[in-house]
Design a protein around this nucleic acid. Structure first.
Lengths: 367, 367
DNA sequence: CCTGGCACTCTTCCGCCGGGAGTGCCAGAG
DNA sequence: CTCTGGCACTCCCGGCGGAAGAGTGCCAGG
């Protein structure tokens, strides 16, 4: 389609594009040939630069908001910049420390993620996103039940990855403390290492087996187990969106109408969830620019995100969302480092093995 | 100070003030004498109304943004309107149903409160606030410990008011499952009905007693108990602020500068917490208009809020915050009804007594 | 006590104009 | 062939002025 491959732009055009993107990122305004000539990096007159810029416009890397305005990078321009021109500015040791401390601070996964999203927002001055998808593929290490009120029981799931999830469920029958302890031991022994959907299916199959029909205790166990799994799973699909106010600082969205649109869009978390779920398949840092995705194409937003969790089983996504004109060179390493810090934290929790000296409970209440 | 008591305004002046406030609430604009004369409620010419309006201005109920603009109610004007003129429009049965359903839906207190705040925001088209203060005066019904990983233990507190709070804590020593069960039973038996700060003090006193010095198990129990109380208390001071985007709809805040200020102010939750904590002392529905409080005086905001929880021990505040020009006649019953629904819900949970048939554990591990 | 009339004030909107910034094109120099 | 200066053109933006509109205060008359 295009006359040349993306990568073999002439060196001069590359430099010009680089400079325009950089300047546009800091100023937010369209860049003219005169401004460019005066910046010192080129020994060229405005007229010559105009020719280069005109070429870049033809190739689709630049655009003019109107005749007689300077040029602004297009989505394609940003894409080229990110792929071939950008030099990531790595984080300072201070910044790393801040991230490490913040991640170390909390213990429960939801707290950690919540901190992460607001930290991300503060450090980037963009909107911070942290997403933890449904836990159906969540392999459990233990499952405990605690009585909380009559026919109200708290169920505590601990994942093999150290994640702890808990929820109060309402049951049809009352359970005594002893019963609950037995059930906890039984289910933990029987299903440790299984994912929630496997557990669910196995429990349902068990209801049909004759042995269960004659064991009242086992019946109760199965009923409680199914309730617990069904109640926990749909609930735990969390998205933290933090620091939406940072958008108010961006000059390109200073009119009330576009602010309204953006805030409403951010409130519709379902769309973001879909978007992040598709991202979840890819490994490594992802940058989605402007029209490259559903959410941002409307508002000229970009997303910088990366998976966290162990490589074998990713847990979710962290990232930022902000105007297309953002400092990718800083955002990329920031998101990258935070996601790695989170992954490390989760891996550590995984290593802290479950209490070792425990007697394994019997396989059936009757044995 | 003023020539007459607030309550004995002339009937005509009252009606005029009433009408001006009502019209200003719906339109958001300054009201002129002509508009008022044409509305049909007065058989008076604009000139006569002007005289009345001039009087009301002198009394401090109305103000002009500039000469030759209409009049706008002042804080005092709104205050008079709310105290003496407003007729609350009670909720429709449909609205009540929606609230009842939403409150019935969730079981865990934090979920209920979270739902409440976003429901409030949706139904009012204002910012919804729900506040639950620190739990130091929280009397517990039970306290359970569950092992979650080596030296990580989840502590589950159930309050006498049915509130469940849980937190993962890190301990210095590992505990076996059996130990944790024993500790749970012991602490629950020993401290059921006590408030958290009483528990804390008693545990600390116990460390000094000689009996504890010679009972290793008791030592461990005390250590764990103190850690649990210390970890849970500071954490649980929750404020839900939902639906900030609704401010974007209000025409009086359509410029980016004031939006910025407001969003930043809403982000500073500490100030709101202070404000709501002072409100917590008062019973019944509270309406704070414009300059009547710290937060709103800057931005011409009002707060409509009410305590929830049982009358004897209030749990927190629910309410809305929005521009001074809001439909108080609708907001008041809305907040009122929701707070009552929450209180009812919490009272119900209180009634569902804790599991009854449980054997009381021994008072000491040595007995 | 109410009313119509009148003069006055203040804001808002619109059209106009000039300056500034940037472009495209062209012809000439290296 | 490439770079450069010059020139005409386009478009945005800010300031100015005038007209319209809305509202007020005051006054005199019913």
């Amino acid at each position: 389609m295009l006359p040349r491959q993306d990568t073999d732009l002439e060196p001069r055009a590359r430099e010009v594009l680089h400079e325009i993107v950089m300047q546009h990122i800091t100023s937010g305004e369209a860049i003219g040939s005169r401004t460019l000539s005066k910046c010192g990096k080129f020994q060229l007159s405005p007229a010559s630069l105009r020719n280069v810029m005109s070429d870049l416009e033809e190739l689709g890397f630049l655009a003019q908001p109107h005749t007689s305005a300077g040029r602004v990078p297009t989505d394609r321009g940003y894409r080229f910049f990110i792929n071939h021109l950008m030099k990531s500015r790595s984080l300072s040791t201070r910044e790393r420390e801040v991230i490490d401390e913040e991640v170390a601070l909390a213990d429960q996964i939801d707290e950690v993620l919540h901190h992460a999203s607001s930290l991300l927002s503060k450090m980037s001055d963009q909107v911070g996103l942290v997403f933890m998808p449904t836990l159906l593929q969540f392999a459990i290490r233990s499952m405990d039940f605690i009585s909380v009120a009559e026919s109200k029981i708290m169920c505590i799931l601990v994942g093999t990855n150290g994640v702890v999830v808990n929820k109060v469920i309402e049951t049809r029958f009352p359970f005594s403390r002893d019963e609950l302890e037995k059930i906890s031991r039984y289910i933990t022994a029987e299903f440790a290492g299984c994912t929630l959907d496997v557990i669910r299916r196995r429990l349902i199959r068990m209801t049909e087996q004759e042995r269960a029909q004659h064991d009242a205790m086992l019946q109760k166990t199965i009923a409680l187990g199914i309730e617990a799994v069904d109640d926990v799973v749909p609930f735990d699909h969390d998205l933290y969106v933090e620091g939406a106010a940072s958008i108010l600082n961006k000059p390109e969205y200073s009119d009330a109408a576009s602010l309204r649109k953006i805030f409403l869009a951010l409130q519709e978390k379902e769309k973001l969830v879909v978007l992040l779920e598709t991202c979840l398949r890819e490994e490594g840092l992802q940058i989605l620019i402007g029209s490259e995705n559903d959410f941002t194409q409307v508002h000229n937003f970009s997303i910088v995100a990366r998976r966290y969790g162990s490589t074998s089983s990713p847990l979710g996504m962290v990232g930022i969302i902000g105007p297309m004109r953002m400092e990718y060179a800083r955002m990329a390493p920031l998101v990258d480092y935070l996601s790695r810090a989170l992954s490390r934290k989760i891996e550590e929790q995984q290593d802290t093995g479950f209490l070792s000296g425990e007697a394994r409970p019997p396989r059936s209440f009757r044995e």
